[in-house]
Amino acid sequence: MDILTQQLINGLVLGSIYALVALGYTMVYGILELINFAHGEVTMFGAMICLAVIGALAGNGTGLDGGVIVLLGLLAAIAVCMAMGFLIERIAYRPLRRAPRLAALITAIGVSIVLQNLAMLIWGKQYVTFPPLLPLVRYELGGAIITNLQIFIMVLSCLLMAGLLVLVKHTRLGRAMRATAQAQDIAGLMGINTHTIISVTFVIGAALAAVAGVMVSAYYGLAHYYMGFMLGLKAFTAAVLGGIGNIAGAMLGGLLLGVIESLGAGYIGALTGGFLGSHYQDVFAFFVLILVLIARPSGLLGERVVERA
């Protein structure tokens, strides 16, 4: 059974990255009902900026420890991405607050294209490698192999998600965010500066995206200007699977999607008697999504959408 354990580990690591990115989608959607297509690109910028900082510090005679360099890169990535999140909302989305939702969606696509090409102009079209600064340790776990990096990714994601839950459920800021999500106009009347709250939501989402981006590039050892698109798409799927707008749902959806993909690639051949192979991995994931949505039209943990009368 070590193969199954291994596939579960693969899936859970992938899933915790999806979950972290999915949070950004779900938070923005919860408040603005906007699919922030550019969120995947923010993740990519996080990875790229971290690598740029690492590139500048590593092997440059600074004598810093590998871990310290990565940490500095991570902090820089978080800072830049937070600023980006703020600016994106301020420049591209705020003028469209009262516009039809599809107009905002197209703007989001536009922002995504712009960020992607900007990254290409800055860092070029080639893949950027993550230098081997962190020592890789492998552990045996019931016949399967797990690395220290994989453990670190899962632990950090869990901590961040728990932190976010506490923030939203138990702080003043969180209450203001929930109020704005419920009814923006009324929240305004209650003395909440909804513009600020929306900005804060974008900034928090961007910070999580930056962490996810750095984790992805460290895990796979490379980054690319195009990496945000697929990652964003998967994360968005995860958010919908869990029930978009619901923070716990995004976490559940992310982990589930990761495991589904992993098991799908591993076992779909055996399930279909060799007719379908691992090339149907994504079909499998979307198929599960469609089944879930047919049974529960607003996702696993999503609240029932009340018909607008």
Binding site: V216, Y220, Y226, E261, S262, A265, G266, G277, S278, H279
Partner: peptide, 21 residues
């Protein structure tokens, strides 16, 4: 084993795990 991926993928752990078996 005959496994498949895409030209956009970065994660091959799932197919490599089945191959390992």
């Amino acid at each position: 084993a005959r496994e498949f991926t895409t030209d956009r993928s970065t994660d091959f752990l799932a197919i490599l795990t089945s191959i390992k078996a």
